[in-house]
């Protein structure tokens, strides 16, 4: 049923640029974590950030919805525009931004509340539902999009923390999509999951691409190759190469990219 629901919306024209970043620099105190990074993220596309640990890919991801604001010493300069609007503009309320740019974290982090409340929380605080029935619909739709509805529909009152790791992560994805974001940021969403759960989440990411632009940070090159259309390779705070995923993995232009994907560094 929900297959048809999605196919109604055609996959957006691949050339729409959702997020444009230009000369982004991030400093943690004296530590220059991101150096002059410029990446354009297209709408309805999965973009993967790959690179060795500490190369700044997660930091860069967290700039896109200003999660770095919570770190006192973090300074971001440069330009990040979503739909042409500068997200570091003084007038921008990070709360509104984060409703538009959802995030899924490395470790599944459901609230210690029921499955229903986990998903309903976002819509509630953003006033997306007019009444209980409305909210029930939103929760069901989000859980279906999170590909976890069938597993939890009979126990929506059970605590979200009681689910298995993979289910928790899909619950977190459902929670993120419940607020109707336009961009979904995923920070190594599968690093805490076993291969089967990883497979389920990857399938889900592919589904989500129909409606959202997805940015995923991953350690696994295979995962990047499987789920993404665009890949950016980060190394020591530099964005070394950004291209179609196929290009990066078959015909890397930079020596460092080649060394990384062939396993010589990283």
């Amino acid at each position: 049923m929900y297959d048809t629901q999605y196919s109604e919306k055609a996959v957006g024209s691949a050339q729409d640029i959702k997020i444009a970043t230009k000369d982004v620099n991030v400093r943690y105190g004296a530590n220059h974590a991101i150096k002059d990074v410029s990446v354009d993220i297209q709408d309805k596309t999965v973009t993967a950030f790959i690179g060795p640990s500490g190369c700044g890919k997660s930091t860069f991801l967290r700039c896109l919805n200003r999660m770095n604001d919570t770190i006192d010493v973090c300074r971001v300069t440069g330009e990040i525009r979503i739909d042409g609007e500068d997200i570091y503009d003084k007038r921008v309320d990070p709360v509104q931004l984060r409703a538009k740019v959802g995030m899924v974290f490395q470790k599944p982090n459901p609230f210690p509340k029921s499955i229903y409340d986990n998903v309903a929380y976002g819509p509630k605080i953003h006033g997306l539902s007019r009444n209980k029935a409305d909210l029930d619909d939103i929760v069901e739709r989000a859980l279906r999009r999170g590909a976890i509805w069938d597993e939890v529909k009979d126990r929506l009152d059970a605590p979200g923390t009681g689910l298995s790791g993979g289910q928790q992560q899909r619950l977190c994805i459902a929670r993120a999509v419940a607020t109707e974001p336009e961009v979904l940021l995923m920070d190594e969403p599968c690093s805490a999951l076993d291969p089967i759960a990883t497979g389920q989440v990857e399938e889900l990411i592919d589904e989500l691409r129909r409606e959202y632009s997805v940015v995923i940070v991953t350690h696994s090159m295979q995962q990047a190759a499987r789920v993404s259309q665009k890949t950016a390779f980060f190394h020591l705070g530099d964005m070394v190469e950004f291209d179609d995923t196929d290009e990066i993995f078959t015909n890397p232009k930079d020596k460092r990219t080649e060394s990384y994907i062939t396993g010589r560094i990283g």
Partner: peptide, 15 residues
């Protein structure tokens, strides 16, 4: 309280 709970709340757009 684990920081991941704060992240989760901020991540869905809570103030």
């Amino acid at each position: 309280v684990p920081p991941s709970i704060r992240d989760a709340a901020l991540g869905v757009g809570a103030s």
